[in-house]
Amino acid sequence: MPAFNQLNTYLYLAVILFCLGLYGVLSRRNLIAVLISVELMLNAASINFMAFNRFLAPHPAVGQIAALFIMAVAAAEAAIALSIIVALYRKLKSINIEQANELRG
């Protein structure tokens, strides 16, 4: 299949994934769902790195290392986000973002 061996296919895939993630962040009210959407956006960046690495980069390892780093950092981010979500749940008994709206002005 020639489409699977072209850079553009993967770039489009990444853009679609990124936009889906952004849409999720903006539209979902559940904090866990927002977190998942953020992960989607990060993975879109990973796909970009891998695609550029596979088709263009002279040095074949850089993009792969970037993808590995992104995974590790995303894991740390998920840990922090989940712990704050748990803290929020203890106080509000809800993980709906609409409940957290005391700060205004």
Partner: peptide
């Protein structure tokens, strides 16, 4: 906690934007 949540998600989304941009620069 509310401030923490907002800070975290704004930060996470903007760093996603940054990372996506960095990947294009790399490309």
């Amino acid at each position: 906690v509310e401030a923490g949540i907002k800070y975290l998600f704004f930060g996470a989304v903007s760093s996603c934007f940054m990372l996506f941009g960095l990947s294009y620069i790399f490309g």
